[in-house]
Design a protein around this nucleic acid. Structure first.
Length: 583
DNA sequence: TGCTGTTTACAGAGAT
DNA sequence: ATCTCTGTAAACAGCA
């Protein structure tokens, strides 16, 4: 069990980006495990897979990380595409710049620009600031840990391992990290155990804040998470979420000072809860009301939250009907059979995305109230945060027709790219597809869960089809770069056009109507949606999704389709500007 | 002494 | 226009 903070291998202001990238590309493993690699074949981010021992800490101990450099996983493309999408505008030039309509420059100009920018691109591309906010970075880091918690230094290292950009100016961004941890309710501090002394506490995600970025934007949350336990008066009941549901029971023990029974009465949520509530309408700390707790009180309550979490890390063998307790990672490692029991139990309590999306259980406007406040809100409003991870299970995973050899399907190589770009385009253009996705439980391809999780369904699928394991959402910098590039390519040629979705992205609710024309079953809900059948458009039907396409787009669709089916040559620098080929 | 953590302050950008 | 979120800087305290 990893409990100590590894020393940072990155010296402030000394790390050469190029060196770092080359090392990573050549498979040199840092002494401290590269979380991307460890994530590639595991499912540390998934609540149902927390028990897997090959997680963040485990890999660092057994030294198995080097073989997991699966930087070309199409799944990982989502991550980068997500990043690029979150940015809104491609940060770099593209090898395909100028392909798209409406660019306003001639091909020659584009070529010149490409040649000019690509040089700088190669220098700077890998060092571009990742399009994630610090909060999202922290969230990703914490979710990547099997313990769902990290020390500050571990968070630092996780970020630096993943993003060379953050190997410079460490003082600046690390200060911001600390500020984010302290300032945001979504992060809770967990005391160290007495037998695991060290500097600093562990940080974990508040259990109710785990899906802050499921809406799709890594730069900015739709809404800042605020702990609201304060308003509930007494401390949390056993049926309430506890932040330490994610904390291994043997990882930490409450310090003596927190053994005071009264400490739990001071709900730790009071600290941030009170602060957040009183400050909920003016974010400027300087405008805090006098009702704010004192500094000492806040610290005390903060620690009490950790104590509360510790109190509840013991595995729960019974769940309330309203609360699905999550498996304790550490406990599950030692008692996998009980975890399986729990999972089975949970499967009866909470339908998975596939179950929910099954034709016999098609969501309607009645049972699935949708939050259509924003198209970015891609999940049913009544979804518990815990449940959203289920949405990452591609429905097709349970569809036999999809269980074909991906190697025989070149289009599949770009399926996730296509999905990501389609999604980005759909959202950007406020298209029907975006609404369809919103109605279809389609996981946001850029969601943290999508990027970092392997669902239980995927796990089952991989067990049956090990050769598909390459499609596990691997996270590494290479893939990140690739995907940004892919995204750029896509968006440059996707202005007003979406590439065809692929099987993986077919939401369950996208069915073929009895009339034969594909429709989205949820489109009949009371939610206002753009009309799927525009009179001025031609229907493009691909893999169950109905996309209205204008005539002018149909030719582009063919081009785009060709583009998407072009298999990347990983030795082709055009595909990886700024990236040194690994082999 | 350096790291960790909290807080204040302010600016900028996105969302409403 | 206003609100909200994020990033940055800085001061400060506590701790290993």
């Amino acid at each position: 069990m990893m409990l100590s903070s590894p020393p940072s291998k990155y010296q402030p202001f000394q790390q050469s980006y190029a060196t770092g990238m080359n090392n990573m590309a050549n498979g040199m493993q840092p002494s401290y495990v590269n979380p991307m690699n460890t994530m590639s074949l595991t499912a540390a981010g998934n609540q149902f897979n927390q028990a897997l021992p090959q997680g963040y800490g485990g890999m660092s101990l057994n030294g198995m990380g080097s073989g997991a450099m699966s930087g070309h996983s199409p799944h990982s493309v989502q991550m980068a595409a997500a990043a690029a999408a979150a940015v809104g505008s491609p940060p770099m030039g593209s090898a395909y710049a100028g392909m798209g309509p409406g660019v306003g420059i001639t091909p020659n100009m584009a070529l010149m620009l490409n040649r000019r920018t690509e040089k700088a691109y190669r220098r700077n591309y890998t060092h571009a600031k990742p399009p994630y906010s610090y909060i999202s970075l922290i969230t990703m880091a914490l979710q990547s840990s099997p313990n769902k918690m990290m020390t500050l230094s571990e968070i630092y290292n996780w970020i630096m391992d993943l993003f060379p950009f953050y190997r410079q100016n460490q003082q600046r961004w690390q200060n911001s990290i600390r500020h984010s941890l302290s300032f945001n309710d979504c992060f809770v501090k967990v005391p160290r155990s007495a037998d695991k002394p060290g500097k600093g506490s562990y940080w974990s995600l508040h259990p109710d804040a785990g899906n802050m970025f499921e809406n799709g934007c890594y730069l900015r949350r739709q809404k800042r998470f605020k702990s609201d336990k304060k308003s509930k008066g007494a401390g949390p009941s056993s049926e309430e979420h506890s932040p330490l549901e994610n904390i291994p029971n043997d990882a930490v023990t409450p310090p003596p000072s927190l053994s005071n029974p009264g400490s739990t009465n001071n709900s730790p949520h009071d600290s941030h809860g009170t602060y957040a509530e009183s400050d909920s309408d003016n974010k400027s700390p300087g405008l805090a009301t006098p009702s704010l707790p004192s500094h000492d009180q806040m610290q005390y309550n903060h620690a009490a939250l950790g104590h509360e979490m510790l109190q509840q890390i013991q595995p729960t063998h019974e769940s309330s009907s309203t609360h699905q307790s999550r498996p304790n990672p550490a406990y599950a490692v030692e008692h996998p059979e009980k975890l399986m029991q729990n999972q089975h139990h949970h499967s009866h309590q909470q339908p998975t995305a596939v179950e929910v999306c099954s034709p016999s259980n098609t969501p309607t406007s009645e049972n699935i109230p949708l939050n259509t406040h924003s198209l970015h809100e891609m999940v049913p409003a009544n979804e518990k945060s815990d449940d959203r991870a289920h949405h990452n299970a591609p429905h097709s995973m349970n569809q036999e027709h999809h269980l074909v050899s991906h190697e025989q399907d070149p289009h599949h190589l770009y399926s996730h790219y296509a999905q990501a770009t389609a999604y980005a385009a759909a959202v950007q253009h406020n298209s029907f597809a975006a609404v369809a996705a919103a109605h279809s439980f389609a996981p946001h391809p850029f969601s943290i869960s999508s990027l970092m999780n392997v669902t239980d369904h995927q796990q089952q699928h991989y067990q049956q089809h090990p050769h598909h394991q390459t499609y596990t959402p691997a996270k590494d910098l290479r893939a990140y770069q690739d995907a940004v590039q892919y995204y750029n390519n896509g968006m440059n040629s996707l202005t007003g056009l979406m590439p065809p979705p692929v099987n993986d992205s077919v939401p369950a609710q996208c069915t073929i109507a009895s009339s034969g024309s594909p429709v989205n079953s949820a489109s009949s809900s009371s939610v206002s949606t753009p009309s799927p059948s525009s009179s001025s458009s031609t229907s493009h039907y691909s893999n169950g999704l109905h996309y209205p396409l204008h005539h002018s787009q149909q030719h582009q669709l063919h081009l785009q389709s060709d583009h998407l089916t072009h298999q990347p040559d990983h030795t082709d620098a055009a595909f990886y500007p700024g990236c040194v080929p690994a082999n």
